[in-house]
């Protein structure tokens, strides 16, 4: 891989990481969905770069699947969902942004250290990408833990999947096609089920606040 493609790949990786930070700090649901779509776009960009640099044909297909699923369909479903649920302008008030940012930085350092012994085996790609992928996964995880509303939790879940997908393309030139199709199908079905589920939750509690879902505890 030429230095230029390595640099381009690094650029996309840093965009992914930047968006992960932005999501961590974003209170508005509608902006979160847009950030998720942009993250998907960066993912498409990085996949195409790897495909072009390595000549792996099937990576173009998986870039196409990502484009359709994560940039078009999922954001569309999410936008529709928040419109129908009337939570479009909801603002999460409970998160402490400076602390979240600091924890996020700690996670990035941790992820890089964890990935360090492995990245050296990476033959051709920019070294940092596996660390960045892991950092994205961990930050989405953090987002899911700290958010109290259902939709941001789901977006965190999907963003985590983005990080995993990036790990797959950057470290291994993509998983076998059949596996990628299966994963894409799972994500899509999961999203639809979550959509159904959110209506059930709202019907029951008149709100999408996860704090209602904390009754089942050990005495």
């Amino acid at each position: 891989m030429s230095p230029l493609t390595g640099q381009i790949l690094n650029l996309f990786a840093s965009v992914l990481l930047l968006i992960a930070f932005a999501m961590l700090a974003q209170r508005r649901i509608v902006t979160l969905i847009n950030l998720f779509a942009i993250q998907g776009l960066a993912l498409v960009g990085s996949t195409v770069t790897v495909a072009w640099a390595t000549g792996q044909r099937h990576l173009y297909y998986s870039a196409g699947i990502t484009l359709v699923l994560k940039v078009v369909i999922l954001p569309f479903i999410l936008h529709r969902l928040i419109r129908r649920l009337n939570v479009k302008w909801d603002i999460e008030t409970l998160i402490n942004i400076p602390t979240m940012m600091l924890v996020g930085i700690v996670l990035v350092v941790f992820a890089f250290n964890l990935a360090l012994p492995i990245s050296q085996f990476s033959q051709s790609i920019a070294r940092g990408t596996l660390g960045i992928a892991l950092a994205c996964v961990l930050m989405s995880f953090l987002m899911m833990i700290t958010r109290s509303k259902a939709v941001p939790q789901v977006i965190g879940f999907l963003a985590m999947e983005n990080g995993l997908f990036f790990a797959a393309t950057s470290a291994t030139y993509g998983m076998p096609m059949v596996v990628e199709l299966g994963i894409a199908l799972d994500v899509l079905v999961g999203m639809i089920i979550l959509g159904v589920f959110m209506f059930q939750i709202r019907e029951q509690f008149d709100s999408l606040d996860i704090h209602h879902l904390e009754k089942l505890k050990e005495d």
Binding site: M144, F157, L194, Q200, Q204, H212, L216
Partner: peptide, 22 residues
């Protein structure tokens, strides 16, 4: 059953297993 408790259980199941399986 669509009770409050069962919705909570299912949400927990989905999110925890989803994160785990990730």
């Amino acid at each position: 059953y669509r009770t409050a408790a069962s919705l909570e259980a299912a949400w927990k199941y989905f999110i925890l297993c989803g994160v785990g399986i990730a």
